[in-house]
Amino acid sequence: MENILEIKNLSKSYGNFKLDNIGFNIEKGYIMGFIGPNGAGKTTTIKLIMNLIKRNSGEIKVFGLDNINHEKEIKSRIGFVYDESNYYENLSVKDNAKLIADFYEKWSWTEFDRYINIFGLDKKQKIKELSKGMKTKFSLATALSHEAELLLMDEPTSGLDPVSRQEIINILQEYIEDGNKSVLFSTHIISDIEKMADYVTFINKGKIVFSEEKLKIEDEYRIVKGGLDILESISEEDFIQIKRNKYGFSGLTKDYHKFQNIYGSNIVVDKPNIEEIMLYMVGEKYE
């Protein structure tokens, strides 16, 4: 399978923050959720892909092409949706679209109008009159109107109501239906990707924790819960993170078979969702 995006040994330093030798790939035809706490490096990574900031080292390939040497071609095939609204607030939806449309050879006004209709936007409205959700939808409409093969979305659903979020998720699932396009969806609202993401890349403090098929991650990890008495005879090294309360403990681990064999029905072994995995991993123990 082809990779639409390949990142290898990417590093970037910024004062206090450092993106440290990260790497991951996205295959054609899939949605990748890019998760991590705020400040983990998600936006930095996306900016590096778009060459808005300069990398210190490493390689980024999009559609098999180096992202700096073939910048213009790559950008004509990428649709982007950023967190902040960076449009001329005093101009209308249509006017802002006109200013962007010109740059794309494959721009289609029919497609743009179609999405504007689906999203229920008014082309004559000024951007400053739109709610955050509507601005994101406008952004998405422009990103989808020039036959982009890769959608880069930086926190597109933050600040959106559940209905709008679901609308966007539906559109993305439709987008990848033909198997030729991919989506990189960065977010700290993990519930958005729980259902629709094929792959999940988790970044924390500038490092990639894992980048894997979502189902495989869910297969690998378990949350083991038991009484405090059991906790005493457990080696904490087998756990990624343990949480304690007055009545018992719960811990995230990969080695759950071991515990199941020893403790049998004295413990509960649960399959965690991605959000729980992240919450455990972004604890102090995990470096």
């Binding site: 035809g29 899939y30 949605i31 998720i169 539906n170 699932q173 439709e174 990848i176 239906e177 033909d178 198997g179 259902k195 629709m196 993401a197 094929d198 792959y199 098929e213 979502k214 189902l215």
Partner: peptide, 17 residues
């Protein structure tokens, strides 16, 4: 696989598996 994923609103990898 993809059409089913879209209809059910689940990830492609899910229907693939």
């Amino acid at each position: 696989i993809r059409n089913l994923a879209k209809e059910l609103g689940v990830s492609v990898i899910t229907t693939k598996r």
